[in-house]
Design a protein around this nucleic acid. Structure first.
Lengths: 204, 204
DNA sequence: ATCTATAAACCGACCAGTCGGTATATAATG
DNA sequence: CATTATATACCGACTGGTCGGTTTATAGAT
Protein backbone atom coordinates (compact mmCIF):
# COMPACT_ATOMS: atom_id res chain seq x y z
CA UNK A 1 0.00 0.00 0.00
CA UNK A 2 2.74 2.49 0.80
CA UNK A 3 3.67 4.03 -2.54
CA UNK A 4 7.30 3.07 -2.22
CA UNK A 5 7.83 0.26 0.20
CA UNK A 6 11.27 -0.32 -1.28
CA UNK A 7 12.44 3.14 -0.41
CA UNK A 8 11.41 2.69 3.19
CA UNK A 9 13.33 -0.57 3.47
CA UNK A 10 16.34 1.01 1.81
CA UNK A 11 16.32 4.05 4.06
CA UNK A 12 15.83 2.00 7.18
CA UNK A 13 18.75 -0.19 6.22
CA UNK A 14 20.85 2.91 5.56
CA UNK A 15 19.93 4.33 8.93
CA UNK A 16 20.51 1.13 10.90
CA UNK A 17 23.82 0.69 9.17
CA UNK A 18 24.86 4.22 9.96
CA UNK A 19 23.76 3.79 13.56
CA UNK A 20 25.76 0.60 14.02
CA UNK A 21 28.85 2.11 12.46
CA UNK A 22 28.59 5.18 14.63
CA UNK A 23 27.88 3.27 17.84
CA UNK A 24 30.80 0.96 17.16
CA UNK A 25 33.09 3.89 16.57
CA UNK A 26 32.22 6.15 19.48
CA UNK A 27 30.06 4.20 21.91
CA UNK A 28 26.39 4.66 22.68
CA UNK A 29 26.99 7.27 25.31
CA UNK A 30 28.81 9.54 22.89
CA UNK A 31 26.56 9.15 19.89
CA UNK A 32 24.03 11.82 19.05
CA UNK A 33 21.18 11.65 16.61
CA UNK A 34 23.01 14.25 14.57
CA UNK A 35 25.98 11.92 14.25
CA UNK A 36 23.76 9.19 12.93
CA UNK A 37 21.96 11.57 10.58
CA UNK A 38 25.24 12.65 9.09
CA UNK A 39 26.48 9.08 8.79
CA UNK A 40 23.25 8.12 7.08
CA UNK A 41 23.24 11.16 4.81
CA UNK A 42 19.93 12.37 6.15
CA UNK A 43 18.63 15.28 8.15
CA UNK A 44 17.08 15.12 11.57
CA UNK A 45 13.62 15.34 10.14
CA UNK A 46 14.38 12.68 7.57
CA UNK A 47 15.54 10.28 10.20
CA UNK A 48 12.60 11.08 12.45
CA UNK A 49 10.34 10.07 9.62
CA UNK A 50 11.58 6.50 9.94
CA UNK A 51 12.40 6.18 13.63
CA UNK A 52 10.35 7.94 16.22
CA UNK A 53 12.99 8.15 18.91
CA UNK A 54 16.56 7.35 19.70
CA UNK A 55 15.45 4.41 21.80
CA UNK A 56 13.47 3.05 18.90
CA UNK A 57 16.37 3.36 16.55
CA UNK A 58 18.87 1.83 18.94
CA UNK A 59 16.66 -1.11 19.69
CA UNK A 60 16.16 -1.78 16.01
CA UNK A 61 19.88 -1.41 15.39
CA UNK A 62 20.78 -3.87 18.11
CA UNK A 63 18.24 -6.38 16.86
CA UNK A 64 19.70 -6.16 13.40
CA UNK A 65 23.19 -6.52 14.82
CA UNK A 66 22.40 -9.68 16.74
CA UNK A 67 20.71 -11.24 13.77
CA UNK A 68 23.67 -10.43 11.55
CA UNK A 69 26.24 -11.91 13.91
CA UNK A 70 24.25 -15.03 14.48
CA UNK A 71 23.84 -15.59 10.77
CA UNK A 72 27.57 -15.19 10.43
CA UNK A 73 28.26 -17.87 13.04
CA UNK A 74 25.67 -20.21 11.66
CA UNK A 75 27.12 -19.98 8.17
CA UNK A 76 30.70 -20.47 9.29
CA UNK A 77 29.73 -23.46 11.36
CA UNK A 78 27.89 -25.02 8.43
CA UNK A 79 31.13 -25.23 6.45
CA UNK A 80 32.25 -27.98 8.81
CA UNK A 81 30.71 -31.39 9.14
CA UNK A 82 32.39 -33.04 12.11
CA UNK A 83 30.58 -32.02 15.32
CA UNK A 84 33.77 -31.17 17.20
CA UNK A 85 35.07 -29.15 14.27
CA UNK A 86 31.80 -27.28 14.28
CA UNK A 87 32.07 -26.56 17.97
CA UNK A 88 35.56 -25.21 17.40
CA UNK A 89 34.63 -23.24 14.28
CA UNK A 90 34.51 -19.92 16.10
CA UNK A 91 38.07 -18.78 15.58
CA UNK A 92 36.70 -15.92 13.52
CA UNK A 93 35.60 -14.36 16.81
CA UNK A 94 39.24 -13.55 17.44
CA UNK A 95 40.16 -12.26 14.02
CA UNK A 96 40.89 -8.54 14.16
CA UNK A 97 40.74 -8.24 10.38
CA UNK A 98 37.12 -9.32 10.33
CA UNK A 99 34.85 -6.30 9.94
CA UNK A 100 32.01 -7.96 11.85
CA UNK A 101 34.38 -8.50 14.73
CA UNK A 102 35.89 -5.05 14.68
CA UNK A 103 32.51 -3.39 15.02
CA UNK A 104 30.88 -6.24 16.88
CA UNK A 105 32.55 -6.05 20.28
CA UNK A 106 32.04 -2.35 20.82
CA UNK A 107 28.38 -2.81 20.05
CA UNK A 108 28.06 -5.89 22.20
CA UNK A 109 29.70 -4.35 25.25
CA UNK A 110 27.61 -1.24 24.94
CA UNK A 111 24.55 -3.38 24.65
CA UNK A 112 25.37 -5.40 27.74
CA UNK A 113 26.01 -2.32 29.81
CA UNK A 114 22.54 -1.09 28.92
CA UNK A 115 20.99 -4.50 29.41
CA UNK A 116 22.10 -4.50 33.03
CA UNK A 117 19.54 -1.78 33.68
CA UNK A 118 16.91 -2.66 31.08
CA UNK A 119 14.79 -5.79 31.14
CA UNK A 120 13.80 -5.52 27.50
CA UNK A 121 17.43 -5.51 26.48
CA UNK A 122 18.07 -8.53 28.66
CA UNK A 123 15.26 -10.29 26.87
CA UNK A 124 16.93 -9.63 23.53
CA UNK A 125 20.19 -10.90 24.94
CA UNK A 126 18.57 -14.07 26.23
CA UNK A 127 17.00 -14.75 22.86
CA UNK A 128 20.32 -14.28 21.15
CA UNK A 129 22.09 -16.65 23.51
CA UNK A 130 19.32 -19.15 23.09
CA UNK A 131 19.78 -19.23 19.36
CA UNK A 132 23.49 -19.86 19.80
CA UNK A 133 22.66 -22.57 22.29
CA UNK A 134 20.30 -24.31 19.88
CA UNK A 135 23.04 -24.30 17.27
CA UNK A 136 25.71 -25.67 19.58
CA UNK A 137 23.37 -28.12 21.21
CA UNK A 138 22.49 -29.74 17.91
CA UNK A 139 26.18 -30.20 17.15
CA UNK A 140 26.76 -31.79 20.54
CA UNK A 141 23.82 -34.09 20.05
CA UNK A 142 25.01 -35.16 16.65
CA UNK A 143 28.29 -36.01 18.31
CA UNK A 144 26.50 -37.93 21.02
CA UNK A 145 24.62 -39.95 18.40
CA UNK A 146 28.09 -41.03 17.25
CA UNK A 147 28.96 -42.08 20.77
CA UNK A 148 31.00 -38.97 21.61
CA UNK A 149 30.63 -36.29 24.32
CA UNK A 150 28.73 -38.81 26.38
CA UNK A 151 29.76 -37.34 29.69
CA UNK A 152 27.83 -34.10 29.27
CA UNK A 153 24.24 -33.00 28.90
CA UNK A 154 23.84 -31.19 25.63
CA UNK A 155 22.07 -28.02 26.68
CA UNK A 156 24.08 -26.94 29.71
CA UNK A 157 27.23 -27.88 27.84
CA UNK A 158 26.16 -25.77 24.88
CA UNK A 159 25.56 -22.84 27.22
CA UNK A 160 28.95 -23.33 28.81
CA UNK A 161 30.69 -23.45 25.45
CA UNK A 162 29.03 -20.27 24.32
CA UNK A 163 30.09 -18.61 27.58
CA UNK A 164 33.65 -19.77 27.03
CA UNK A 165 33.74 -18.17 23.58
CA UNK A 166 32.70 -14.89 25.05
CA UNK A 167 34.98 -15.10 28.04
CA UNK A 168 38.03 -15.46 25.85
CA UNK A 169 36.74 -12.76 23.55
CA UNK A 170 36.52 -10.21 26.33
CA UNK A 171 40.15 -10.68 27.24
CA UNK A 172 41.27 -10.71 23.64
CA UNK A 173 39.34 -7.58 22.79
CA UNK A 174 40.11 -5.45 25.83
CA UNK A 175 43.60 -6.60 26.73
CA UNK A 176 45.00 -7.95 23.52
CA UNK A 177 48.60 -7.29 24.49
CA UNK A 178 48.55 -10.10 26.99
CA UNK A 179 45.80 -12.07 25.24
CA UNK A 180 46.64 -12.43 21.56
CA UNK A 181 44.41 -14.30 19.15
CA UNK A 182 46.62 -17.38 19.40
CA UNK A 183 46.03 -17.50 23.13
CA UNK A 184 42.29 -17.02 22.71
CA UNK A 185 41.97 -19.77 20.14
CA UNK A 186 44.13 -22.21 22.03
CA UNK A 187 42.41 -21.52 25.32
CA UNK A 188 38.97 -21.72 23.80
CA UNK A 189 39.76 -25.11 22.28
CA UNK A 190 41.30 -26.51 25.44
CA UNK A 191 38.38 -25.35 27.55
CA UNK A 192 35.76 -26.66 25.13
CA UNK A 193 37.46 -29.98 24.61
CA UNK A 194 38.10 -30.29 28.33
CA UNK A 195 34.51 -29.52 29.12
CA UNK A 196 33.18 -31.99 26.58
CA UNK A 197 35.33 -34.69 28.08
CA UNK A 198 34.40 -33.96 31.69
CA UNK A 199 33.64 -37.05 33.69
CA UNK A 200 30.68 -36.59 35.97
CA UNK A 201 27.47 -36.27 33.99
CA UNK A 202 25.34 -34.98 36.86
CA UNK A 203 25.43 -31.33 35.77
CA UNK A 204 26.36 -30.57 32.17
CA UNK B 1 49.64 21.40 57.55
CA UNK B 2 46.18 20.37 56.42
CA UNK B 3 43.83 21.09 59.29
CA UNK B 4 42.24 17.72 58.93
CA UNK B 5 43.88 15.15 56.73
CA UNK B 6 41.50 12.51 58.02
CA UNK B 7 38.51 14.50 56.90
CA UNK B 8 39.71 14.50 53.33
CA UNK B 9 40.11 10.74 53.33
CA UNK B 10 36.73 10.32 54.96
CA UNK B 11 34.99 12.59 52.48
CA UNK B 12 36.66 11.00 49.50
CA UNK B 13 35.61 7.58 50.73
CA UNK B 14 32.07 8.84 51.20
CA UNK B 15 32.01 10.24 47.70
CA UNK B 16 33.51 7.19 46.03
CA UNK B 17 31.10 5.00 47.89
CA UNK B 18 28.17 7.11 46.84
CA UNK B 19 29.40 7.11 43.26
CA UNK B 20 29.75 3.34 43.14
CA UNK B 21 26.33 2.81 44.66
CA UNK B 22 24.75 5.22 42.22
CA UNK B 23 26.53 3.86 39.18
CA UNK B 24 25.59 0.33 40.11
CA UNK B 25 21.99 1.31 40.52
CA UNK B 26 21.40 3.41 37.41
CA UNK B 27 24.35 2.94 35.09
CA UNK B 28 27.05 5.45 34.20
CA UNK B 29 25.06 6.95 31.37
CA UNK B 30 22.17 7.87 33.64
CA UNK B 31 24.12 9.18 36.58
CA UNK B 32 24.50 12.91 37.11
CA UNK B 33 26.82 14.68 39.46
CA UNK B 34 23.76 15.84 41.35
CA UNK B 35 22.76 12.23 41.94
CA UNK B 36 26.12 11.51 43.44
CA UNK B 37 26.07 14.69 45.50
CA UNK B 38 22.78 13.70 47.02
CA UNK B 39 23.92 10.14 47.66
CA UNK B 40 27.05 11.47 49.33
CA UNK B 41 25.20 14.12 51.32
CA UNK B 42 27.21 16.94 49.77
CA UNK B 43 26.52 19.88 47.55
CA UNK B 44 27.81 20.33 44.03
CA UNK B 45 30.47 22.68 45.23
CA UNK B 46 31.42 20.41 48.08
CA UNK B 47 31.95 17.54 45.74
CA UNK B 48 33.88 19.71 43.32
CA UNK B 49 36.23 20.54 46.13
CA UNK B 50 37.41 16.92 46.20
CA UNK B 51 37.05 15.86 42.59
CA UNK B 52 37.69 18.29 39.76
CA UNK B 53 35.49 16.61 37.18
CA UNK B 54 33.12 13.76 36.59
CA UNK B 55 35.84 11.90 34.73
CA UNK B 56 38.17 12.28 37.65
CA UNK B 57 35.61 10.98 40.07
CA UNK B 58 34.60 8.05 37.91
CA UNK B 59 38.17 6.99 37.35
CA UNK B 60 38.88 7.07 41.06
CA UNK B 61 35.69 5.16 41.77
CA UNK B 62 36.53 2.43 39.29
CA UNK B 63 40.04 2.09 40.67
CA UNK B 64 38.65 1.66 44.15
CA UNK B 65 36.12 -0.85 42.86
CA UNK B 66 38.73 -3.04 41.18
CA UNK B 67 40.92 -3.03 44.22
CA UNK B 68 38.02 -3.98 46.44
CA UNK B 69 36.93 -6.90 44.30
CA UNK B 70 40.42 -8.22 43.91
CA UNK B 71 40.98 -8.12 47.64
CA UNK B 72 37.78 -10.01 48.06
CA UNK B 73 38.90 -12.78 45.70
CA UNK B 74 42.33 -12.96 47.19
CA UNK B 75 40.95 -13.38 50.68
CA UNK B 76 38.43 -16.01 49.70
CA UNK B 77 41.07 -17.97 47.87
CA UNK B 78 43.39 -17.87 50.84
CA UNK B 79 40.88 -19.82 52.92
CA UNK B 80 41.72 -22.89 50.83
CA UNK B 81 45.00 -24.69 50.72
CA UNK B 82 44.75 -27.26 47.94
CA UNK B 83 45.67 -25.64 44.62
CA UNK B 84 42.66 -27.03 42.76
CA UNK B 85 40.32 -25.95 45.54
CA UNK B 86 41.80 -22.51 45.31
CA UNK B 87 41.25 -22.40 41.57
CA UNK B 88 37.64 -23.38 42.12
CA UNK B 89 37.11 -21.01 45.05
CA UNK B 90 35.25 -18.44 42.97
CA UNK B 91 31.71 -19.65 43.50
CA UNK B 92 31.03 -16.39 45.25
CA UNK B 93 31.06 -14.75 41.85
CA UNK B 94 27.67 -16.33 41.25
CA UNK B 95 26.07 -15.59 44.59
CA UNK B 96 23.23 -13.09 44.16
CA UNK B 97 23.07 -12.44 47.91
CA UNK B 98 26.59 -11.13 47.94
CA UNK B 99 26.57 -7.32 48.02
CA UNK B 100 29.89 -7.09 46.18
CA UNK B 101 28.41 -9.17 43.42
CA UNK B 102 25.13 -7.35 43.23
CA UNK B 103 26.81 -4.02 42.66
CA UNK B 104 29.88 -5.45 41.00
CA UNK B 105 28.54 -6.58 37.65
CA UNK B 106 26.71 -3.39 36.77
CA UNK B 107 29.88 -1.49 37.48
CA UNK B 108 32.08 -3.91 35.59
CA UNK B 109 29.91 -3.92 32.47
CA UNK B 110 29.70 -0.18 32.46
CA UNK B 111 33.43 -0.02 32.85
CA UNK B 112 34.08 -2.38 29.96
CA UNK B 113 31.77 -0.49 27.65
CA UNK B 114 33.76 2.65 28.34
CA UNK B 115 37.07 0.83 28.09
CA UNK B 116 36.29 -0.13 24.52
CA UNK B 117 36.72 3.52 23.57
CA UNK B 118 39.26 4.62 26.16
CA UNK B 119 42.85 3.41 26.29
CA UNK B 120 43.36 4.54 29.88
CA UNK B 121 40.43 2.44 31.00
CA UNK B 122 41.79 -0.53 29.09
CA UNK B 123 45.05 -0.07 30.94
CA UNK B 124 43.24 -0.27 34.27
CA UNK B 125 41.45 -3.37 33.05
CA UNK B 126 44.70 -5.01 31.98
CA UNK B 127 46.26 -4.32 35.34
CA UNK B 128 43.30 -5.82 37.11
CA UNK B 129 43.37 -8.95 34.99
CA UNK B 130 47.09 -9.23 35.54
CA UNK B 131 46.64 -9.26 39.27
CA UNK B 132 44.10 -12.05 38.99
CA UNK B 133 46.45 -13.90 36.71
CA UNK B 134 49.31 -13.66 39.18
CA UNK B 135 47.06 -15.10 41.85
CA UNK B 136 45.82 -17.99 39.74
CA UNK B 137 49.21 -18.63 38.24
CA UNK B 138 50.80 -19.13 41.62
CA UNK B 139 48.12 -21.67 42.52
CA UNK B 140 48.71 -23.55 39.30
CA UNK B 141 52.43 -23.57 39.87
CA UNK B 142 52.03 -24.86 43.40
CA UNK B 143 49.98 -27.66 41.88
CA UNK B 144 52.64 -28.33 39.29
CA UNK B 145 55.27 -28.58 42.01
CA UNK B 146 53.13 -31.44 43.33
CA UNK B 147 53.16 -33.08 39.92
CA UNK B 148 49.69 -31.92 38.90
CA UNK B 149 48.43 -29.78 35.97
CA UNK B 150 51.53 -30.82 34.09
CA UNK B 151 49.92 -30.51 30.69
CA UNK B 152 49.49 -26.75 30.81
CA UNK B 153 51.68 -23.69 31.00
CA UNK B 154 50.83 -21.74 34.09
CA UNK B 155 50.35 -18.25 32.75
CA UNK B 156 48.18 -18.85 29.70
CA UNK B 157 46.17 -21.34 31.72
CA UNK B 158 45.67 -18.77 34.47
CA UNK B 159 44.45 -16.28 31.90
CA UNK B 160 42.08 -18.83 30.44
CA UNK B 161 40.67 -19.71 33.84
CA UNK B 162 40.07 -16.10 34.67
CA UNK B 163 38.30 -15.69 31.32
CA UNK B 164 36.13 -18.70 32.05
CA UNK B 165 35.00 -17.22 35.35
CA UNK B 166 33.90 -14.10 33.60
CA UNK B 167 32.27 -15.88 30.69
CA UNK B 168 30.01 -17.83 32.99
CA UNK B 169 29.35 -14.73 35.04
CA UNK B 170 28.06 -12.79 32.05
CA UNK B 171 25.48 -15.43 31.28
CA UNK B 172 24.50 -15.82 34.90
CA UNK B 173 24.13 -12.13 35.45
CA UNK B 174 22.31 -11.13 32.27
CA UNK B 175 20.24 -14.24 31.56
CA UNK B 176 19.86 -15.88 34.91
CA UNK B 177 16.62 -17.62 33.98
CA UNK B 178 18.44 -20.01 31.71
CA UNK B 179 21.76 -19.77 33.55
CA UNK B 180 21.22 -20.26 37.26
CA UNK B 181 24.06 -20.22 39.74
CA UNK B 182 24.15 -24.00 39.81
CA UNK B 183 24.79 -24.04 36.08
CA UNK B 184 27.46 -21.38 36.37
CA UNK B 185 29.31 -23.16 39.14
CA UNK B 186 29.13 -26.56 37.51
CA UNK B 187 30.17 -25.23 34.12
CA UNK B 188 32.98 -23.20 35.58
CA UNK B 189 34.35 -26.24 37.38
CA UNK B 190 34.07 -28.53 34.39
CA UNK B 191 35.74 -26.03 32.11
CA UNK B 192 38.55 -25.30 34.56
CA UNK B 193 39.20 -28.92 35.39
CA UNK B 194 38.96 -29.86 31.72
CA UNK B 195 41.38 -27.13 30.78
CA UNK B 196 43.88 -28.09 33.46
CA UNK B 197 43.84 -31.65 32.21
CA UNK B 198 44.25 -30.79 28.55
CA UNK B 199 46.76 -32.95 26.75
CA UNK B 200 48.92 -30.95 24.38
CA UNK B 201 51.23 -28.62 26.25
CA UNK B 202 52.22 -26.52 23.23
CA UNK B 203 49.91 -23.59 24.05
CA UNK B 204 48.64 -23.30 27.60
C1' DA C 1 -4.05 18.40 -5.58
C1' DT C 2 -2.75 15.51 -2.34
C1' DC C 3 0.40 12.81 0.03
C1' DT C 4 5.06 11.38 1.02
C1' DA C 5 9.86 12.37 1.83
C1' DT C 6 13.19 15.36 3.38
C1' DA C 7 15.23 19.59 5.01
C1' DA C 8 15.94 23.44 8.18
C1' DA C 9 14.92 25.96 12.03
C1' DC C 10 13.55 25.89 16.53
C1' DC C 11 12.35 24.59 21.46
C1' DG C 12 13.00 23.15 26.00
C1' DA C 13 15.05 20.06 29.23
C1' DC C 14 19.08 18.68 31.13
C1' DC C 15 23.63 18.91 32.99
C1' DA C 16 28.74 19.64 33.91
C1' DG C 17 31.36 22.94 35.44
C1' DT C 18 32.04 27.75 37.43
C1' DC C 19 31.98 31.27 40.69
C1' DG C 20 30.88 34.36 44.38
C1' DG C 21 30.09 33.81 48.76
C1' DT C 22 29.79 31.79 53.68
C1' DA C 23 31.24 29.07 57.52
C1' DT C 24 34.66 26.80 60.08
C1' DA C 25 39.05 25.73 61.70
C1' DT C 26 43.88 26.62 62.56
C1' DA C 27 47.70 29.79 63.11
C1' DA C 28 49.78 34.19 64.20
C1' DT C 29 49.97 38.25 66.85
C1' DG C 30 49.68 41.49 70.69
C1' DC D 1 43.35 35.26 76.22
C1' DA D 2 41.48 37.93 72.56
C1' DT D 3 41.86 39.28 67.96
C1' DT D 4 43.10 39.06 63.45
C1' DA D 5 44.66 36.64 59.36
C1' DT D 6 44.42 32.91 56.47
C1' DA D 7 43.47 28.54 54.57
C1' DT D 8 40.17 24.99 54.06
C1' DA D 9 35.42 23.16 53.53
C1' DC D 10 31.24 23.72 51.66
C1' DC D 11 27.07 25.79 49.47
C1' DG D 12 23.78 26.76 45.64
C1' DA D 13 22.62 29.84 41.90
C1' DC D 14 24.00 30.57 37.37
C1' DT D 15 25.84 29.69 32.62
C1' DG D 16 26.95 27.91 28.42
C1' DG D 17 26.32 24.33 25.68
C1' DT D 18 24.32 19.94 24.13
C1' DC D 19 20.90 17.12 22.42
C1' DG D 20 16.43 14.77 21.66
C1' DG D 21 12.42 15.86 19.77
C1' DT D 22 9.03 18.91 17.22
C1' DT D 23 7.34 22.02 13.98
C1' DT D 24 7.27 24.27 9.77
C1' DA D 25 8.56 24.67 5.03
C1' DT D 26 9.54 22.68 0.47
C1' DA D 27 10.22 19.49 -3.22
C1' DG D 28 8.74 15.48 -5.68
C1' DA D 29 5.70 11.86 -6.97
C1' DT D 30 1.07 10.05 -8.26
Amino acid sequence: MPPNADLEALRKAQIIDAALRTIAERGCANVTMDDICKAAGLSKGGLAHYYRSKDDLFKAAFQEFFQRIFLRGEQTMSTFSDPLDQLLSFEWLYNPEDPDVETGYPILYDFMAIAVHDAEYREIFSDWINSWVRLLKSAIERGQSQGRFTNVKSEPAARAISAIYQGMATRWYLARGEHPAAWAIDSMKRAVIGLLGSFDKSGS
